[in-house]
Structures are given as C-alpha cells and as structure tokens.
Design a protein around this nucleic acid. Sequence first.
DNA 1: TATATTTGCATCGTGCTCGATATAATCGCT
DNA 2: AGCGATTATATCGAGCACGATGCAAATATA
Lengths: 150, 150
Amino acid sequence: MDEKQLLLSSQICFPLYSASRLFTKAYKPYLEKMGLTYPQYLVLMVLWENDGLSVNQITEKLLLNSNTLSPLLKRMEKMELLKRNRSIEDERSVIVQLSKKGKQLKLNALPIPEKLITELISKNIKMEDMLKLKDILDELILALGHKRES
Amino acid sequence: MDEKQLLLSSQICFPLYSASRLFTKAYKPYLEKMGLTYPQYLVLMVLWENDGLSVNQITEKLLLNSNTLSPLLKRMEKMELLKRNRSIEDERSVIVQLSKKGKQLKLNALPIPEKLITELISKNIKMEDMLKLKDILDELILALGHKRES
DNA sequence: TATATTTGCATCGTGCTCGATATAATCGCT
DNA sequence: AGCGATTATATCGAGCACGATGCAAATATA
C-alpha cells in the first residue's frame, strides 16, 4: 500500500461528489423550464422508456430506495405528471403510470442532451474522455454495487 | 450532432450521480465510527491541511456556498469539532479553527483511504482506471467551473 | 390451516443542497 | 466624509438522501 494510493483515494471521492453536483447544476436551466428537478427528470426518463413500472422496479433502475422515491413520486403525482395505483395482482405493489402531461414532457426534454453536449464541447471537453468516464463509472457502480452481499 | 452523442449525454450524468452516492456510502461505515457525515469529513480534511480558514475560503475549496456551509459548520461547532469566530481584521469574515477534538480525529481518519483502496482492489477495480477517472473528473470540474461567467 | 418470514411501500427524523433573500461590514468613488 | 456597490455570512423554504421503523400483503414453513 504505497503513498500514491493513499493520496488517490482521498482525492477520488471528492471530485466525484463535486462533478456530480456541477453536472446536475448544468442541467438545471433546462429542467426548470419544465418545472422539474433532476431526480424527477430521472424518474421520467425511466418511465418514458418503460411506462407502468412498480415503485420497486424504479428503485432498482435508479438505485434509490422507497424512502426517497415515495415522497418524490407523490410530489410528481401532485404535479399531475403521473398516477400511482395499487397493483391488482399484488396489492403490495404500486404501479406508476405517466399522465398525458408526463408523456408530453418527453418532447421538451429531447433537445436537452444535445445542448449539454454542445456546452461540454464548447468548454473543450473531449467526447472520448466522456466515453471513458462513463465506462469507468459503470465499472465502479457495478463494484460498489447497489445490492449488498447477502 | 449524431445519435451516439445524444445517447451519451443522457447516460453520463446518471452514472456520475449514482457513483457519487455509492462512493459516499462506501465511506459511511468508517465515518460513522467517528460520528461524522461525509460533508463534515470534507470540512475536516480541509482544516487538517490548513487550519484557521475563513468560511469563504472553505466554500472555495469545497465548491459549496455559505447557505450549505453555515449550518454545517454550526452543527460541527455544536459537536465541539471546531470554533467559529469573527475575524478582527474584517468583521464580516468568520474564522474556523479546529478544537482539540477536531484535530485528534485526524488520527482516526488516517487509515480510511487505505481501507477504501483495499475494498476497491478486492472488487477488481483497477488503480489505473481510478487515476484516469480522477483526471477526467478534474477536467470536468474545471470546465463546469464553480465560478459563473461574469 | 396457522404462524413465521419476507416483500413492497410508506412515514419519520436528521442532515445536506441550493435559490432567494437579508444584514452588516467594507470598499470605491466622488 | 458621504453613499452606493460589493463582499462575507446567515436564514428560510423546498426538495432530496437515507437509516430506522411500521404495516399490510404475500409467501414459506411447520
């Protein structure tokens, strides 16, 4: 265990934490035009891809627990972006379905990624680095895995 | 602007957000032995390196604003980790200084990075990837920069 | 079939993050 | 010196993150 590693690990978490917050902030101007927060946008992205999921299925995709998602979904229901209904097959499950308004927001959201990319390019970020970044992050996520060891 | 880029950008922010949360979670078992949260640990790391900074100097190092740091420092003062005092030269500034307890916690914190590294290695994360990750994140942080355009 | 365990979701409390805003001290300009 | 602008910190409100806990439905086991 050499000193380089000791330095590294104390430095890896902080950049991760800062970059995540800065990136979320970069989304903000686009999202607030739609009246969305970033976590709400994530929920919509999941549902745009696959509507009618249960709360549990959404927790798995977003790596968030019900104690975060339940109030979030409740707020989104109040905003009339979606509906929550108990499943008929399993009364414990709550099925989440997009409203017309929730579905329509997808059109507003479509140009966002392109704008973000343009922003990054204009700041001299290399696409190649972003691809590499994604690869490493996915590896990390897998390793630090959402599911605990039994 | 091809489709690959469109896909990429919608995928880069989420892994960043998830990895950041998972990494913070990985610190948790070590930090809670000391009764610290991750942001509190960050503040201590800054002060261990350079005690007696003003609130503003800490905001610059952590890329957090006073509306986040003020209550955080207040809680830490209540925990007797540090003291906050108005500067004599500039009555607007608040100088933050570690207490004996705050200084002593450094000893408990020293082995943490090594343990984290061991954990990552045991999960087959390559050190080389972590180094590359840090480089790219630092680039991103610089680009999305904490200081707004004028 | 009765009972124990598990599963899915929700609530609560604490702490963090951040935009908007307030307040007091300092600075800059005339 | 006087006064508007700036700076440093703090407060407030809303939303998120998460550990602990509760509850009801479903499942497993005796």
